[in-house]
Nucleic acid binder design. Structure first.
Lengths: 208, 208
DNA sequence: ACTTCGGCAGAACGGTCGTTCAGCAGTGCC
DNA sequence: GGCACTGCTGAACGACCGTTCTGCCGAAGT
């Protein structure tokens, strides 16, 4: 273990803080919020129990910080993908699906916490969390509605199609194995194809 | 509270046992296995803590009993639906999707436990549980493979399509509201349509 | 009437949990 | 050199957990 006593204080703190957050992520994702213990988190981070409480106010604050950070990172991915997608609804839906699949595959641990441990947050945080999730579904809903309006999406069940698209993308966090045969970009294309199929995509024919 | 002292002993026991199982279901689904307490389960069932331990060996046995029962009920639905579906792959996939959606919508509490609390079971039980889940995915995989062989399913990504179908069906347990506007049979038809769309269903044309 | 016995209550046990607290090294300032 | 101060440690606290144990209460057998 390197001697960190003479490093700048901010650096020491930042390293400790990050190690604790990473350890909490692993423990929450592996055992679930309630089964994870603060002592195990501190041990995994290589700091003492008191040090953890020196940096963070408590267990629930760790969870809420992880969820908030993960959710904002996901939103940033989505809005960036949408900004690069232009106005065509098919391209926008493709961008959303690709961004979601990529995020779920690359941040599996965070995704499992954000999607699976939300019931353990405080009531005030839950309001915020639920509102942000509604915004995320609205991104998909808007793209699908635009496609229906333009006539390039033909599904008779847009609400069910939207839920199906979101469910299949989120499920990637449950099963994807980064050591497996399928690289993430391939997965993004497959899921974009499946999503367009689900909404009944028929490319516009110029004139008839 | 009615006086149950003179009922047949078997009836008393059965009522108590069932009340405990139902209470455990609600508590596990609402708070998660680790956050649920045996005292709360007993209180919700209207029995004493000692009575619970008189009927069941412990908390984990309650969970495993609930999971095993729920999983077998789901399998029974699937095999019954398949038996009535005949040999056509599209009908078989439709039957599987309808049975799954129906089960997830009607047994939301059990489904949430089976799908979400499996990490809390004993290692020996987990082996059995995982094997049964693999059998369930195999039912879907077989139907899809048969459709591809016959040429009526045209998806280029059958594995991803299978995972998408299962994910969207299972998600029903998360969001379905029995007091909402959509009755379950309607949902079954919608999801069957979506599933056939996902696998690229093209009805066979007799000759060309 | 007396014994026997199964079915449960109530209390208790050992353990772990999240959280707090008093105090001690090491650092920088006067 | 003395001193305040920051950053952290080890120990402790109170609460609650899953589980067990002792014993009573009512019914059945004789």
């Amino acid at each position: 273990m390197p001697d960190t006593r003479n490093r700048p204080a901010a650096g020491r703190q930042a390293a400790g803080r990050q190690a604790i957050i990473d350890a909490a992520r692993e423990e929450f994702a592996a055992r679930g919020f309630d089964a994870a213990s603060v002592r195990d988190i501190a041990a995994r981070a290589g700091v003492s129990l008191s040090a953890l409480y020196h940096y963070y106010p408590g267990k629930q604050a760790l969870l809420e910080g992880i969820i908030a950070t993960g959710l904002e990172a996901y939103f940033a991915s989505c809005t960036a993908a949408l900004a690069a997608a232009g106005e065509d609804p098919a391209r926008r839906l493709t961008a959303l699906v690709a961004a979601t699949v990529r995020h779920r595959a690359h941040h599996r641990v965070d995704s499992r916490i954000v999607l699976g441990e939300a019931r353990s947050v405080s009531p005030e945080f839950r309001v915020h969390h639920r509102a942000r999730l509604r915004e995320a579904t609205a991104l998909f809903a808007d793209a699908i509605t635009a496609g229906l309006t333009r006539g390039t999406f033909t599904t008779p069940h847009p609400d069910d199609a939207r839920r199906a698209v979101i469910a299949m993308c989120n499920a990637v966090a449950q099963w994807y194995d980064p050591t497996g045969p399928t690289p993430v970009p391939t997965l993004e294309r497959h899921y974009a194809d499946l999503a367009l199929t689900l909404v009944g995509y028929r490319p516009a024919v110029p004139e008839w």
